[in-house]
């Protein structure tokens, strides 16, 4: 029958593309992760779970997980919180709103790789603006802060090359770069909050800004928050360019900034160990999937969609 085949012509192209460019690569990566394949080799050896065993036992990969999770769990809350804060502040000003929006959005638009060079200068231990500014504070009341006093005595930290500071510095740049994007999303969310709800809240006795935020703004921004948090998680799991720009030689001081994306790049591209690279990719994918599903599940029951 003619009609029985028609539907294939409708869904066929989309289905074909989805399989070829989305599902197949994932399946291939999954398959490769069980082998010791490297690019150029005619064949590959099946190694079973050996790659995964390495990921979950070797200290390098332990560091990889540590760096990734530190980064993600600093950048996501801070960039979401700052994004919301900036959006609320901008929304409440009558003047210069557009100017602030532009300024906060600049880091999002700028190429991160170029910005990384600027930050590298800024954090330079001797000629960098950060440490030279801090040094000016020496001798003032700031010295009552023991960390500061220590810095004055022995020199301030080598932000990017000290293994105790490197990941936090990179995370700071991640927040700096990412919160403007969240701010724009929140600003869009704020425009859809009905003005009358604020008036109703005011009439109901919500006198403080906090009461109004709790009663109207935060619940009405629920759907936006779901989206912003999901996007931020995925984006910060995918951090790569700052790490590559600062530490092309692999993972920063004693691999303290060895994030997953960089590990994939290093193993699969630089060292041509496709098998282990594929295995990290699969683990990475599982993490992102898991986190996304988790928070959808939590949030779905608590968020109100109009």
């Amino acid at each position: 029958m003619q009609t029985a085949k028609a539907h294939w012509w409708f869904v066929g192209p989309a289905l074909f593309l989805m399989v070829v460019i989305l599902l197949m690569p994932i399946a291939i990566a999954g398959a490769l992760s069980f082998t010791s394949y490297s690019l150029g080799n005619p064949g590959a050896e099946f190694v079973g779970l050996e790659n995964y065993e390495k990921i979950f036992t070797r200290s390098t990969y332990e560091k990889m997980f540590g760096a990734t999770f530190r980064y993600v769990f600093v950048v996501v809350p801070l960039s979401v919180g700052l994004g919301l804060g900036a959006a609320l502040l901008i929304n409440s000003t009558r003047r210069f709103g557009d100017l602030y929006k532009t300024i906060y959005f600049l880091p999002v638009m700028a190429a991160l790789i170029a910005m990384a060079i600027v930050w590298e200068f800024a954090f330079h231990p001797t000629i960098g603006i950060v440490n030279s500014t801090l040094e000016r504070g020496c001798g003032s009341f700031l010295e009552s802060w023991s960390w500061f006093a220590h810095g004055c005595e022995r020199g301030f930290p080598l932000w990017l090359t000290d293994r105790d500071y490197a990941i936090w510095t990179v995370a700071f740049i991640g927040v700096w770069q990412g919160f403007g994007f969240n701010m724009v999303l929140y600003l869009a969310g704020l425009t859809s909050v009905p003005r009358e709800l604020y008036h109703a809240a005011e009439m109901d006795g919500a006198e403080t800004a906090w009461d109004r935020f709790r009663l109207v703004t935060w619940p009405m921004l629920g759907p936006t928050t779901v989206f912003v948090v999901t996007i931020s998680f995925i984006r910060s799991f995918q951090v790569f360019d700052t790490v590559e720009a600062f530490y092309p030689q692999g993972g920063g001081p004693s691999k303290s900034v060895y994030v997953m994306m960089f590990a994939i790049y290093e193993k699969a591209i630089q060292q041509n160990l496709m098998g282990i690279g594929a295995a990290i990719t699969v683990v990475f994918l599982a993490f992102v999937m898991f986190l996304t599903l988790m928070q959808r599940w939590i949030v779905e029951r608590r968020v109100h969609y109009t």
Partner: peptide
């Protein structure tokens, strides 16, 4: 201490 009923009712949709 006035109460207002709005044209759009302005009920909190999440409550």
């Amino acid at each position: 201490n006035l109460a207002m009923v709005f044209q759009s009712y302005a009920l909190y949709p999440h409550l």
